[in-house]
Design a protein around this nucleic acid. Structure first.
Lengths: 145, 145
DNA sequence: AAATTTGTAATCACGACTGTAACAATTTTA
DNA sequence: TAAAATTGTTACAGTCGTGATTACAAATTT
C-alpha cells in the first residue's frame, strides 16, 4: 500500500536477511518465513534475495522444501559486500543540469566535487569492509544476553 | 518542469554557491546571477542560500544592490559545515515497519545496525571535515590552468 | 514613488520506493 | 502422474522527495 518512505532500506533488509540465514545454520529459509521477521511482503524479500544471489552471497532453490541459504560463512561476508549487492546509491548527487561552462567556477566544479565525494564514499565503504556478518551476529547475541 | 532526479543535489549546489561567493570576493551576488552559473531557477538558489544563512555560512540582504556574501573566509569553511547546512540524509534507512520482536534477530538488529551505520557515516563526515572551501577553490584553479 | 532583490508559500511533474497481486517455472512429495 | 510448495519476475498502485516554477509580500536603494 506504499507507506512513508524517506529513503531506501534495502541495505537494512539485506543485512537482516543474511543474519537470519546465518542464524538458520544452513537450513533453507523460505521468503515467507523471512518476511515475518522483517515484517514485510515476501516479494520484497525475494527481490532482495535475488540481488544477493546475483552477487554470489546466497543460494536459492525453487519448489517444495525450497528456500535460501548463505553461500559463505558469516566471517567472510562483509557489510560492504551486502551494501554493494543491493544499494547503488553513491553519496550526494551532482548538478541536475550541467553548470555553465562560461563561468570559471561552473566550468570546473564538477570534477573537483566528484573526487571529493568519491573519497568520502570510499571512507564509508572502508568501515563497511571492516565489519562482517559475524560481527553483526556477535553484537546481536551480546544484546540478547 | 520536474526532470529526472536520482537523489538530492543540494550539497553540490551549496558548494557551487559558496565557491561563487568566494570567487566574488565580498561583492554581494544576486540569486539570479548565481542561478545562471548553476543552471537552475533563482528560487532554488534562494532556498539553498536560506539554509546556508541559517547555518551562519552566508549573509544576505534584500532590496536594490542586495545579494549574498560568504560570512567567513574560505579557509575556515569545511565541506562538512556545508553538508550539514543543506543535507539531512543519514545513510541507509532502517526498516520501514519495525521487525518482529518475537524473532531473536528481528528483536535486536536495529540498534546493532544503527551503530554500524553511524560509524560509517562518521567516517564520511571526517573526510568532509578535512576539506575546506579553499581546497575547492585551489582545485578549481589548478584545473583552469 | 519606483525599481530591485530576498524570503517564502503553493503547486506541478516526475521518479524512487515499498507493497501487493498474479502467474509461470521449478522441485518435491504422495 | 498429479498436487503442493516455492522461487523468480512482471506489472501496477499509493506515497513521498525533489527541483522547477509562479506568485507575491517584505525590505532596501535610488
Amino acid at each position: 500500500m506504499g507507506l512513508y518512505v524517506s529513503k531506501n532500506c534495502r541495505f537494512t533488509v539485506a543485512v537482516h536477511i543474511c543474519a537470519l540465514l546465518a542464524h538458520n545454520a544452513g537450513k533453507p529459509a523460505t521468503s515467507d518465513w523471512i518476511a515475518e521477521s522483517v515484517n514485510t511482503n515476501p516479494v520484497v524479500i525475494r527481490r532482495t534475495l535475488s540481488a544477493l544471489a546475483k552477487a554470489g552471497l546466497v543460494k536459492s532453490w525453487r519448489g517444495s522444501n525450497g528456500g535460501s541459504v548463505l553461500a559463505h560463512p558469516a566471517q567472510v561476508v562483509t557489510l560492504a559486500m551486502i551494501f554493494r549487492a543491493v544499494d547503488d546509491s553513491e553519496g550526494p548527487a551532482l548538478h541536475q543540469q550541467p553548470p555553465s561552462a562560461d563561468c570559471p567556477i561552473g566550468a570546473h566544479i564538477q570534477p573537483v566535487l566528484v573526487d571529493m565525494i568519491a573519497s568520502a564514499e570510499s571512507a564509508r565503504e572502508k568501515v563497511f569492509s571492516a565489519l562482517t556478518l559475524a560481527d553483526v551476529m556477535n553484537s546481536i547475541q551480546r544484546r540478547a544476553a
